[in-house]
Amino acid sequence: RLEPTYFEKAVRLLDGDPAVAFVSCWLRAFGDEEWEWKPERCDLPALLWEDTVLTASLMRREAIVAVGGYDTEMPVQGAEDWDLWLTLVARGYRGAILREVLFNYRRREGSLSTVSWNGSGHLSLASYRVAKHAESYRAYLIDVLLHQDAETSALLRQNDEIERYIASELEPAVALRREELAALQSRLASITPKAMEHANPSQAAARIRELEAALGAVSAEVTALRTSASWRITGPLREAYGWWLRRRGAR
């Protein structure tokens, strides 16, 4: 969903600078995910490692026609816009980014962007993009490699922090909750029908409800720890970090 002022500001920028062929802006995600995306550049080499331009960008028709429009022969649907920005910039056209959040983007599981970025087609799209724009990638190879190295280093640092957090806080917390859970289960089991005969029924019933509530709370907490978003999202990061550690140890 575009903010009401987006077109006004984009058109003003296009009218004010004939050299600009497309205009993008910053983005706010909502729905399954909530975050803001604020890219600063939409030229080379920035576009070689990330699509920094919105799909909903405003474009000059003559520029799109001049480069042949969207590529209809991509191996997998998705990222056609990224390919178009790369083609435009390689042909000498220039883009601009409005430094305002003017686009609200719903994120949901199973969407085209999610599938194209995280699904099996991602590598096919990446291979196709690099092959098609090989000249640009060759011209900026050092920049691309340095950027990827910085991204990898940041990933490893993040994984190290995650592993430390899991080992120092999450795993001990889970162990503690499991001990509490076992203790509560044992206490519940000790309240037998025979013991009930010598107890105040109302007090015994209240105690059972109390123990059952505590048991449910601890069980829910253990489940929450194991199924939390952070645990699931960082799964690939933990796997990548483990692979890197094994590689480093094999040297």
Score class of each variant (00 low, 15 high):
residue 191 I to F: 06
residue 241 Y to K: 07
residue 83 D to W: 02
residue 69 G to I: 05
residue 169 E to Q: 15
residue 189 A to P: 04
residue 230 S to E: 13
residue 203 Q to T: 11
residue 57 S to P: 04
residue 82 W to V: 03
residue 208 I to S: 01
residue 109 E to P: 02
residue 4 P to H: 08
residue 123 L to A: 11
residue 112 L to M: 06
residue 227 T to Q: 14
residue 201 P to A: 13
residue 241 Y to P: 03
residue 194 K to N: 04
residue 92 G to M: 06
residue 88 L to F: 03
residue 51 D to C: 14
residue 112 L to P: 00
residue 201 P to H: 05
residue 205 A to Y: 06
residue 220 A to R: 13
residue 36 E to S: 13
residue 49 W to Y: 15
residue 192 T to R: 04
residue 176 L to R: 15
residue 75 P to A: 03
residue 129 R to S: 00
residue 69 G to H: 05
residue 238 R to I: 08
residue 102 L to H: 01
residue 124 S to A: 14
residue 123 L to I: 09
residue 216 G to S: 10
residue 165 Y to A: 12
residue 81 D to S: 00
residue 234 T to Y: 09
residue 27 L to W: 05
residue 204 A to K: 05
residue 165 Y to G: 05
residue 34 E to Q: 14
residue 59 M to T: 03
residue 5 T to H: 04
residue 98 L to N: 01
residue 91 R to N: 07
residue 197 E to G: 00
residue 126 A to L: 15
residue 169 E to R: 15
residue 47 L to D: 01
residue 175 A to G: 00
residue 166 I to D: 12
residue 39 P to W: 07
residue 64 I to K: 01
residue 122 H to I: 00
residue 32 D to P: 08
residue 106 R to T: 04
residue 5 T to K: 13
residue 73 E to K: 13
residue 152 T to M: 14
residue 23 V to I: 14
residue 250 A to L: 13
residue 3 E to V: 08
residue 198 H to Y: 12
residue 103 F to T: 00
residue 114 T to H: 10
residue 197 E to M: 15
residue 234 T to N: 14
residue 30 F to P: 03
residue 195 A to K: 15
residue 66 A to Y: 02
residue 108 R to L: 07
residue 35 W to S: 08
residue 117 W to S: 07
residue 87 T to I: 01
residue 114 T to N: 06
residue 184 L to T: 11
residue 41 R to I: 01
residue 80 E to D: 03
residue 110 G to Y: 09
residue 38 K to P: 07
residue 63 A to L: 07
residue 106 R to A: 04
residue 15 D to Y: 03
residue 61 R to S: 02
residue 78 G to Q: 05
residue 58 L to E: 03
residue 149 D to Q: 15
residue 75 P to S: 02
residue 72 T to V: 08
residue 90 A to I: 03
residue 218 V to A: 02
residue 113 S to T: 12
residue 167 A to Q: 14
residue 89 V to C: 02
residue 15 D to A: 12
residue 78 G to F: 06
residue 157 R to F: 08
residue 109 E to W: 11
residue 149 D to N: 11
residue 250 A to Y: 07
residue 88 L to V: 06
residue 207 R to M: 14
residue 220 A to P: 06
residue 227 T to P: 04
residue 31 G to Q: 10
residue 198 H to Q: 10
residue 119 G to V: 09
residue 96 A to Q: 09
residue 90 A to S: 15
residue 196 M to L: 14
residue 25 C to P: 06
residue 154 A to Y: 07
residue 120 S to N: 05
residue 229 A to V: 14
residue 118 N to L: 13
residue 196 M to Y: 12
residue 70 Y to K: 01
residue 204 A to V: 11
residue 183 A to L: 13
residue 102 L to T: 03
residue 201 P to S: 08
residue 188 L to W: 02
residue 96 A to G: 07
residue 108 R to M: 07
residue 61 R to C: 01
residue 204 A to L: 09
residue 237 L to M: 13
residue 140 Y to K: 05
residue 123 L to R: 12
residue 249 G to M: 14
residue 55 T to C: 06
residue 11 V to D: 01
residue 104 N to C: 03
residue 221 E to H: 11
residue 203 Q to F: 11
residue 110 G to E: 04
residue 54 L to G: 03
residue 177 R to Q: 11
residue 14 L to Y: 05
residue 31 G to T: 10
residue 69 G to F: 07
residue 186 S to G: 11
residue 153 S to A: 15
residue 106 R to D: 01
residue 114 T to M: 09
residue 84 L to I: 04
residue 68 G to R: 08
residue 213 A to H: 14
residue 194 K to V: 15
residue 236 P to S: 12
